[in-house]
């Protein structure tokens, strides 16, 4: 266990150092990417926020609560992006669909360890997290919420749930690229985009069946809406704590099963396609 942890930290440090090197060596490119991604993040929130400000809130959420929800989404997804965003680790269907799994299989490291570390980008991938922290902090200041250690623990819980759901979904649907590399190459991107669009939308006021579906089958409501309600107003243990954990666990289990089945299929058929596009770029 200690050896595994040491390997994890060592590889994390390696990829962090490589990210820093890239930032220092190719500063102009990095600045352009950071500015464009920051603008993209802000513009994706602008619509919902402007509507909330114009109409004094959306559904039962006030404008400040909507701001908190958006801030939370940015914070959690920004952390996820910082940990797994590099080299298409989160867009796993790209790597699988382009036949790039072979590059991983020749490394003398477990696949899971490679996936857990390769995407780490603490310097060029931290903009989402910074935006999220700032927005959340502004919203909290305006809401004048009493912040306790328990509240921060709950915040951490929902951040972990958010990350688990994003990763589980990208892996679950992305595994299809092991069977259909061409057709499913971009499926992880589609899922992440869908989460980004719907996950930032306050769901208050929707019909019950739709609300249930958006918290289970397509769990976008668990990414920011339900955590915002739980953190700002408090929810019962069942809905507030157990439901997100149960849904995230089911998605995680499904992702592991599908990935394992996909890898078994890969051992029989491999991938008859290879594209170096995006590989180690």
């Amino acid at each position: 266990m200690a050896g595994k942890l040491r390997a994890y930290v060592r590889l994390l440090a390696l990829y962090g150092r490589m990210d820093l090197n890239w930032m220092l060596q190719d500063s102009v490119t990095v600045i352009i990417i950071l500015i464009s991604e920051t603008l993209q993040n802000l513009s994706s929130m602008a619509g919902v926020l402007l509507l909330a400000v114009r109409f004094g809130g959306v559904g039962s959420l006030s404008a400040d609560e909507v701001l908190f929800m958006l801030g939370f989404y940015e914070l959690a997804s920004g952390l996820c992006f910082m940990l797994f965003g590099n080299f298409n680790v989160m867009h796993i269907s790209r790597r699988l669909g382009r036949g790039q799994l072979d590059h991983m299989l020749i490394q003398p490291r477990p696949l899971l360890l490679q996936l857990a570390t390769e995407g780490f980008m603490p310097f060029t991938g931290c903009h989402g997290l910074i935006i999220g922290v700032i927005l959340t902090w502004i919203a909290l200041a305006r809401l004048e919420l009493a912040l306790t250690p328990g509240w921060f623990l709950l915040l951490a819980y929902y951040v972990v749930i958010h990350m688990a759901l994003q990763i589980a979904q990208t892996a679950l649907y992305g595994a299809s690229a092991l069977w259909r590399p061409v057709a499913c190459e971009e499926i992880s991107t589609m899922i992440l985009d869908l989460n980004q669009q719907l996950g930032k939308f306050p769901l208050a006021g929707l019909q019950g069946w739709l609300m249930a579906a958006l918290h289970t089958v397509l769990p976008v409501g668990l990414l920011a809406y339900l955590p915002a309600l739980a953190l700002l107003r408090g929810l019962g243990k069942g809905i507030g704590l157990t439901l997100p954990l149960a849904v995230a666990s089911v998605f995680m289990a499904a992702a592991i099963i599908c990935m394992k089945k996909g890898l078994k299929h890969y051992e029989i058929y491999s991938c008859n396609r290879y594209k170096d596009m995006g590989h180690r770029n």
Partner: peptide
Amino acid sequence: FGGRNELWWDH
């Protein structure tokens, strides 16, 4: 493997 690159492209 033929036609593949193991070098990190932007480094």
